[in-house]
Each structure stands twice: as structure tokens, then as C-alpha cells.
Amino acid sequence: MSRRHSAKYKIDRRVGENIWGRPKSPVNKRNYKPGQHGQNRRSKTSDFGLQLMAKQKLKGYYGDITEKQFLRIYEEANRLKGNTSENLIGLLESRLDAIVYRAKFVPTIFAARQFVNHGHVLVNGRRCNIGSARLKPGDVVQIREKSRNMALVLEALGSAERDIPEYVDVDPKAMTATFVRVPELSDVPYPVQMEPAQVVEFYSS
């Protein structure tokens, strides 16, 4: 069960952006920070504050990833060859719950975690209930046959709220999604600007 499901828009208010691009976000009506003095908080943010905000925004976007889990993902990205910020995005987007969300099998990243945890998903024909499971290019994610008529799934697939990115190949009739390749930052359809380079600065400083 999502630990922050009932308060999932708090991060939107905190960073002042609609990070999932959803119409219900409170930022659409009030794009200032929460609290009675929210509109008056106009002080200049320090470099550390900007880096912290970038980290909180990226971590929050992927649902209930804990600080410890997110740090572990960053450390893995830092060990890999190439650009650490691009590696970080690639690792986050390779998670099973992220692919279930990208494929539009569910409406939110929070629902994706819960959907996987409840055993509704197969990976390469085998049941997998671990949202953080890492997928490799070519892996096929499929909704179990018994779960295909769930209202949650049918509504999400029929929604025009989000587009499916090119690195996920979806067959809506078979309810399968193939993870085509590990994406770069420019491939990922974030509704707001994400700054993984600032996240790298945060952890490396």
C-alpha cells in the first residue's frame, strides 16, 4: 500500500510544480508553497536548496522511493560508465513500476506500485510483485489475464492524459509492454523539467 497515497500532491505544493501533470493537482489553482505564509516566501534559494529541491522533485515523482533506496540508485548510477545524471534517469525508468506506469496500465505511479505488489503483473511470463525490479531491454511486461478487466486498467488505457514514450512498445489488446531500450533524459516525458545533474551535485558535494 502506498505510504503517501492520500497526500500524494504534497510534493507538488512543496516544489510549486505539477510534477505529474495531473488536472487534480492543487498547484493548478495555487502555485505557491503550503501554509498561511506560502505566498510570501520569496527569499532567494541557495545552491544547496536548489539541489535539494531537484532531488526531492525527482525522488517524489517515482512515488514512494525512500531516501535510502534513492541514494542506492544514485550510487549505482555513479559506478556505471558514462554520465551519472543520464545513468540515474535510466535506472529509475528501468524499474518495473515505472514501466507499468509508462505503458498506461494504471493512472499514477502510486497505483503502479500497488498494482505490481498485488501480483497483477507478469514479466517474461513469470509473476513479479516487486515494483523496484530492474528490467532489461527486451523484457516483456504483461497484465495477468484475470486482472485485465479491472476498471483501473481499462480507464488508464483509454485516458488521453499521457502519451506512451518510444522506449516502451505497448500492445493494448494483448495488454503487454516491451521495454525497448534504456532511455535518456530527453526521451522521458516528464511534465516538468527534471534536473538530475543538480541531484548529482547534491550527493557529490
Results as ranks from 00 to 15, higher is better:
Val200Tyr: 07
Ile11Val: 13
Arg144Trp: 08
Lys29Ile: 12
Lys59Leu: 10
Pro191Leu: 07
Ser43Glu: 15
Ala133Gly: 05
Tyr32Ala: 07
Arg148Gln: 15
Gln142Phe: 09
Phe202Ile: 06
Val27Ile: 13
Val188Leu: 09
Asn18Gln: 10
Ala103His: 11
Arg113Cys: 00
Leu50Tyr: 11
Ser186Glu: 15
Arg102Thr: 12
Val100Gly: 00
Arg113Thr: 01
Glu161Ile: 05
Val123Arg: 10
Arg4His: 11
Asn28Leu: 12
Val192Arg: 01
Pro34Ala: 06
Phe110Lys: 01
Lys104Pro: 05
Asn124Ala: 10
Lys10Asn: 13
Leu71Val: 06
Gly21Ala: 03
Gly119Ala: 02
Ala160Tyr: 03
Arg148Asn: 11
Ser25Cys: 08
Lys68Thr: 12
Asp187Glu: 15
Lys44Gln: 14
Ala151Arg: 13
Asn124Ile: 10
Glu86Ile: 00
Glu161Tyr: 04
Gly35Lys: 03
Lys68Tyr: 03
Asn83Thr: 11
Asn117His: 09
Asp171Leu: 07
Asn149Tyr: 10
Pro107Ser: 14
Val170Ser: 10
Ser2Pro: 12
Asn31Pro: 14
Phe105Cys: 10
Gly138Glu: 08
Pro172Tyr: 07
Asn83Ala: 10
Leu71Gln: 13
Glu184Ser: 15
Ser159Cys: 03
Val200Ser: 07
Phe179Gly: 00
Glu93Asp: 06
Asp171Ala: 04
Asn31Tyr: 05
His37Phe: 14
Val121Ala: 13
Phe70Lys: 11
Asp12Pro: 09
Tyr203Ile: 08
Gln36Trp: 13
Asn40Gln: 13
Leu135Gln: 08
Leu71Gly: 06
Ala156Gly: 09
Leu50Val: 12
Phe115Val: 02
Ile143Glu: 14
Asp97Phe: 00
Asn18Arg: 04
Asn28Gln: 06
Leu58Trp: 01
Val141Trp: 08
Gly38Arg: 05
Arg102Lys: 08
Val116Gly: 03
Thr108Gln: 07
Phe110Tyr: 15
Asn28Ile: 10
Cys128Gln: 07
Pro196Tyr: 01
Pro172Ala: 07
Leu71Arg: 15
Ser6Ile: 09
Glu86Gln: 10
Glu201Tyr: 10
Thr178Pro: 01
Thr66Met: 08
Val192Ile: 11
Phe202Ser: 03
Phe70Val: 06
Lys173Trp: 11
Glu86His: 03
Ser43Gln: 14
His120Tyr: 12
Glu161Cys: 02
His5Lys: 14
Gly82Met: 03
Leu50Ile: 15
Glu166Trp: 02
Tyr32Lys: 11
